[in-house]
């Protein structure tokens, strides 16, 4: 097994083009997967492309109209970054990922690239209309909704590297709620991210809401998003209806039944909206 550790993105892209490598940033997903394979007699591992020495991928940066989260930015970087209230949900998610150890190592971009249905960062990226800076043979900016293409599948091609995520800066506040069977270190049963803008009168101007762990890839709730504008925020929880979630396709697994997931997601959407209507939720 080879281990590449280039210092520039160009070198990294060249390695990616010429080899079948797994890109690695915080490594928090790669090692558990390796442990799972090794335990049942598969010691093989793809060559590794370690991005950690590429300075250009570090940091969280305010670029005027958007915030850029570099591929090496960790959850802890996010928690410590000075960001507007729109990012409160993202920060809440950061605090719910693994334990502090994983928050210190795991990256926002890596979590997105693993694209687990239960990836804690993903609903926020959808709700915030994030876009993925993909470097590679055809550099491009891919909106989050197009980036997550299915179960553990993304638009990042075999010769591509996600260099950063861009989140447009807008008015409004973000929020995130996660449901698991224990307090820390828990894989979500269901989760909801919401980004809401309200006017001076407390009426909803725009709403973007996404649900995770209830379908092969996390997804937005367009029907609900269309139903909310114009309504007073305090009325929003009562406006949530099962039909707004009808397109989700939760599964039965060890953590929960499909029916429960649907019911829980419905409740969590209401909870997220209710939290947003209370000042306490402003403390991310």
């Amino acid at each position: 097994m080879r281990y590449f550790q280039p210092a520039t993105l160009d070198e990294a892209l060249a390695i990616r083009r010429g080899n079948d490598v797994v890109p690695l940033a915080g490594a928090t997903d790669v090692y558990p997967a390796r442990a799972g394979r090794r335990a049942w007699g598969d010691p093989t591992h793809k060559d590794v492309l370690d991005l950690s020495r590429i300075e250009a991928l570090r940091g969280i940066e305010d670029r005027g109209d958007h915030v850029r989260i570099g591929a090496l930015a960790t959850w802890t970087d996010l928690i410590r970054a000075d960001l507007p209230p729109l990012f409160d949900g993202m920060k809440r998610a950061a605090r719910e990922v693994g334990g502090v150890q994983v928050q210190n190592r795991g990256t926002v971009v890596g979590n997105a690239c693993t694209a687990s249905p239960a990836g804690d960062g993903i609903p926020n990226l959808l709700a915030l209309d994030a876009a993925f800076e993909i470097e590679g043979p055809s550099p491009r900016l891919v909106p989050a909704e197009a980036f997550f293409t299915g179960y553990r599948a993304t638009a990042c091609g075999p010769h591509d590297i996600v260099a950063a995520i861009r989140i447009p800066k807008r008015e409004g506040r973000g929020h995130f709620v996660k449901l698991g069977a224990r307090r820390y270190l828990v894989i979500s049963i269901a989760m909801v991210a919401a980004a809401l803008e309200t006017d001076a009168a407390g009426r909803i101007v725009s709403a973007r809401i996404a649900v995770g762990a209830c379908s092969a890839a996390a997804g937005r709730l367009p029907l609900l998003e269309a139903a909310l504008p114009g309504a007073p925020l305090t009325d929003a929880p009562a406006l949530v209806e099962p039909r707004h979630l009808a397109h989700l396709t939760p599964i039965d697994d060890i953590r929960a039944s499909a029916g429960y997931r649907m019911a829980a997601a419905l409740a969590l959407v209401g909870d997220a909206l209710a939290d947003l209507s209370r000042p306490a939720a402003r403390v991310a």
Partner: peptide, 24 residues
């Protein structure tokens, strides 16, 4: 656990707690 699930291998890396089983 070798998977970041138990934290028994927690060390400080540049002063921050990490699971040493998840650090190349």
């Amino acid at each position: 656990c070798d998977a970041g699930d138990c934290g028994a291998c927690t060390v400080l890396l540049d002063g921050e707690q990490v699971c040493a089983c998840l650090v190349p």
